[in-house]
Every structure is written in structure tokens, then in C-alpha cells.
């Protein structure tokens, strides 16, 4: 047998999967008796892992590479935002309100096992396991512009498939007019959870928006499973809307008849509308949305003009025909 250096061995390979999951589950409910039950090899590997004997980056690379196919609707001709910037500059308030907090704190999030429950106005409510969701359709790589409401932006190669594929597999009733996305919430795994917000994070889309081929059910970025701080293990990406519309770490998808509650809209309805389409003509009450700071490989971000619908007008503008976008911002 070929003997490899420990940091060449992905933990998923040396730890029997069942033991590993058992360990994760025991951590989730706070039991500490996993050592007793686990096989010696598994426990040893886990102990080594917890002591940091395996280099974390190598472990991540080895264990979480995704099989992807080139996607439709990929943005071309724009410089990608480097991986380290996409994964260290995040608004994920459950792990702290500073943009450097999630990269530091989100390691406490346990993403296996993970299920997403499909609820509300559907023929048959059900609970889907993350691994079956990953296998439902081929994972496409799609490069999208990502525009934050705070006037910075990135270009990110996401990995996922259209949300419409999942919705079609869920058989929503004709009475379902909106889709609500609820994010994971757990005080133990989110010790930095700030007060003053009505957790869990909730976002939503009109049914036609959710069915738009651009709306991506996302599992990875740069060909790898999502890092926790970017919304692992499953998130939504809606490239023509401000970033906060794209809920992270989704655990519930609910089909509803009325416009669902959304967290930022509840907190400041005059600043964050339900639609929140990227629109340079509608200022945020406290700053202009006409320009954005594009975060790229250089030291300083470039100031560039913001495009209506973040440049995706051809695919999405028709959904808002006849709507006053200044009123429904």
C-alpha cells in the first residue's frame, strides 16, 4: 500500500462516512460521546483533524471539488474576483456584522447532514437531503456579476442549476404566487448572532422571478463546494438583484400566496424594497447607486457605472413591464 503524507489524505476518505456523519450529528445536538461509538481509526482521524494536523486548505480542496458543466448565461469578458476576496468579504450577519467576520466565524456551521424542507402550497411537502439535491441536475458553472446594495460588486463563478428545476420537481399549486427562502438558524453554531433582527433570515421572490432561468440554486463557487461564509451548503443567487436577496444556507423553501416577509425589508422598508432590483436610477436613501466599486485582482477596487438590472435586462426586464420601478424598488 502506498503510504501518503497525512495532508494528502482527505478526511472523508480515511473516516468512514457513517462515523463522520454520526460525529457531525453528535456535535449538532451537543453530545460529546462520539468517541466511544466511533471506530478507533475514525476517532483518531477526527482527533487529528480537530487538532489541525491536516492542512485545512488541502482538506477542503480534496474533499469538496464539484463536477461541473459549462453553463448558459455566463458573463464573459469580465475579470473574475479572486477566490480569496470572494471568501473573506461577506455579509452573513448570522456570523457577525463586519464583512471579515463570517470568514473567521462560520467554521462553526455544520453543513452535513443537511436537509431542505419544501413546504406550503405544494402537492406534497417533502424534505430533501443535500446530496440528493446535488444530484438532481448537472451542476453548471455560471459567471455572474454580484452587486451588493452597499455599492461594491464582484464577478463570481458560481456552481449550481436553475432554481426552476427544483421548483418543477416540487409541484407547486397554482395558488403559489411567491417563494420564500428561510436560512439556517442555530445559536450554538452561530455564537456571534447579533440581536435586533428577526431571525431566521428570510428572503423571497415572485414566482416568475424564481422561475427565471437566471435564478440559480447554488452549491459552489470556483468549482468547489461553497465555503461556509458564502452560504454553504446551498444558497440562492439572483444576479439582477442586490446581494441580500440571495439567501444563504437555505433550510426551507416555502411556496406562499402572499408576498413573504423579508428580513431587511422589515427592518428598513424605506431602504430595502421587496424587489431590490439593481437600479442605478434609484438611490439608496443614504447613498447613490449610480456607481459601484468592482472588487478585482488589484489592490483598490475600480469605480464603474452600475447597469440597470446589473446588466441582465435582456433576460429579466420584461418581468417588470408596466411596473413603476421607483415605487417598487
Amino acid at each position: 500500500m502506498l503510504i501518503r503524507k497525512p495532508n494528502d489524505i482527505p478526511s472523508s476518505e480515511i473516516t468512514p462516512k457513517k462515523d463522520y456523519e454520526e460525529f457531525q450529528r453528535s456535535r449538532r445536538i451537543g453530545r460529546r460521546s462520539f468517541l466511544a461509538g466511533a471506530a478507533t481509526l475514525g476517532a483518531g482521524a477526527l482527533a487529528a483533524e480537530r487538532m489541525g494536523l491536516f492542512s485545512p486548505t488541502q482538506e477542503v480542496h480534496a474533499a469538496t471539488r464539484l463536477q461541473t458543466v459549462p453553463g448558459k448565461f455566463t458573463t464573459t469578458g469580465e475579470t473574475l474576483t479572486p477566490y480569496n476576496k470572494v471568501t473573506t468579504y461577506n455579509n452573513f450577519y448570522e456570523f457577525g456584522t463586519d464583512k471579515s467576520d463570517p470568514a473567521r466565524n462560520a467554521h462553526t456551521l455544520i453543513t452535513r447532514p443537511w436537509t431542505v424542507s419544501i413546504e406550503g402550497l405544494v402537492k406534497q411537502p417533502k424534505t430533501l437531503d443535500i446530496d440528493s439535491l446535488l444530484k438532481l441536475r448537472p451542476i453548471e458553472e455560471r459567471v455572474y456579476r454580484h452587486r451588493c446594495v452597499e455599492a461594491w460588486s464582484m464577478v463570481i463563478p458560481w456552481d449550481g442549476y436553475p432554481l426552476s428545476e427544483l421548483i418543477n420537481a416540487c409541484d407547486p399549486l397554482p395558488s403559489a404566487k411567491y417563494v420564500q427562502f428561510l436560512s439556517f438558524l442555530n445559536n450554538k453554531e452561530m455564537p456571534e448572532l447579533p440581536g435586533g433582527y428577526d431571525w431566521p433570515y428570510s428572503e423571497g421572490l415572485r414566482m416568475d422571478e424564481a422561475m427565471n432561468p437566471l435564478t440559480l440554486l447554488t452549491f459552489g463557487l470556483y468549482g468547489e463546494e461553497l465555503p461556509n461564509q458564502d452560504g454553504a451548503p446551498i444558497r440562492i443567487v439572483i444576479p439582477w438583484k442586490y446581494g441580500f436577496k440571495s439567501g444563504k444556507s437555505i433550510v426551507k423553501i416555502r411556496f406562499v400566496a402572499k408576498q413573504p416577509r423579508t428580513l431587511w425589508n422589515e427592518i428598513a422598508p424605506n431602504e430595502y424594497g421587496f424587489y431590490s432590483n439593481v437600479n442605478p436610477a434609484v438611490d439608496h436613501p443614504r447613498w447613490s447607486q449610480a456607481h459601484e466599486r468592482r472588487i478585482g485582482p488589484g489592490f483598490l477596487p475600480k469605480i464603474i457605472p452600475t447597469q440597470p438590472f446589473n446588466g441582465y435586462g435582456d433576460q429579466v426586464a420584461s418581468m417588470y413591464n408596466g411596473m413603476n420601478l421607483k415605487k417598487y424598488f
Binding site: V86, F299, L300
Partner: peptide, 11 residues
């Protein structure tokens, strides 16, 4: 140590 400025040094 430019990377310590984070992704958005302007901010």
C-alpha cells in the same frame, strides 16, 4: 501586507 486591507480597501 496588502491583503490585510481585505477585499475592499476603500471601505
Amino acid at each position: 501586507a496588502q491583503d490585510t486591507f481585505g477585499a475592499d480597501p476603500t471601505n
